[in-house]
Amino acid sequence: MAPHDLRRPFKRPLISDQEKRRQQSLLRQAQNRRDAQNHARFLASTALSLEQPHELEPE
């Protein structure tokens, strides 16, 4: 039951540059994963739409 420390950040940024680098890396990785995924889907959907007009004509 020790008294809790109430010291708050003083004249220092809340997020360190190290934390910023970490977050930016995560963002870059997430973006690259999305790009890779979208690329795979783009290739697939291009192939699909080339085939599809024949299938969907009755609609």
């Binding site: 889907r41 697939a44 959907s45 699909l48 739409s49 085939e51 599809q52 299938e55 969907l56």
Partner: peptide
Amino acid sequence: EWAKLAISRAIS
């Protein structure tokens, strides 16, 4: 949109 396209092909 992607899912719709892929599904329409799978079930057609």
